[in-house]
Design a protein around this nucleic acid. Sequence first.
RNA 1: UGGGCUGUAGCCAAGCCGGUAAGGCACCAGACUUUGACUCUGGCAUUGCGCAGGUUCGAGUCCUGCCAGCCCAG
Length: 322
Amino acid sequence: MHIVVGLSGGVDSSVVAALYLSRGHKVTCVYLDGGFGSSQDARAVAAGLGAAFEVVDTSDAMRRLVMAPFLDAYAAGQTPNPCIECNPSVKFPSLLAAARRLSADRVATGHYARCAEGALYKGLPGRDQSYMMYRLPRDNLPLLEFPLGAMDKPSVRALARELGLPVAEKKDSMDICFPYEEPQLDWTLLAPDGRELGRHKGILTLGQRRGLGVASAEGRLYVSALDPKRRVATLDGIDSVLSHTFDLRRVHWLIDEPSGTIACAARIRHAGTEARAEVVPRPSECATLTFEDPMFGGAPGQSAVFYEGERVLGGGVIDAVR
RNA sequence: UGGGCUGUAGCCAAGCCGGUAAGGCACCAGACUUUGACUCUGGCAUUGCGCAGGUUCGAGUCCUGCCAGCCCAG
């Protein structure tokens, strides 16, 4: 089999490339160049493995489809999740296009998730990245492989050492992968009774408490409401940030679209807890998500992802928190 | 220029009849994390407690004076 491996130069994707080679497959490593970062490590890994290597320029798509919307969202008082946008609109389309061009059979990446028979499943607990991929087009799934989905990080690292990969000890990447300037938005911070508590220059997220610079005798304060038009943020106790119900837009399914209400488990943050919920589909790719117990951390712009056991059912972008 | 109250780190605030400065918030660092959320861990008043004296083996804690702010009377 000829397989295209999305090679970032990190530990995970490097192990993936090595695995396919050791199984005797033909591997072409593709480094996506978003216009920042360096292809050096990836190139070195591919060279070390004796695999074909090429660089695909995705900088234009990154700017248009990921970075610009990211900043727009913050300006609109939302909390964007660029990784969720990048996967279906830049990363996987670019890798699949490369595979088509090279007449390769499949595409593999180092994501901690699993793919089988056209369905997407979680990776192992504690290392699951399926949340970031719920928005992939359903017809992409049969072409994708995530060989690390059944592994944990220590094993992957151990394997990298065994294979003698030069990046075996490289630190995990986290945080947003592209550079940007934080928009200097002028927020006025108010108490629930309308008292002015302070000002804040920059971006704010619903549920945020650090960086506000406001001391309160009552305890910790969280951003409980954002009014992007007036640039006013209301600060309140943690109870004010808990909610059961979320309105979703841009709902995307990885199963046949349900005709009515479905019960499932759902998550509203990548590293958030999964909890029992109910999804009521609405017209125009909308839905209402209601949890049995109140959830913390929901913010417009973030995604809610639905699960049934290990399987990812779909998800949507949070439009409003109720 | 009558009476009462208060003055402890950036903010709020414990410190009882003196014994060698709680706690919370904020802030900083780290952990966690393919979203800058949340969470967790650690640090955070170096003889210092409005100022100046006094009593005492020892004072934030008692005494005197002063300064500042607040309240009630005027």
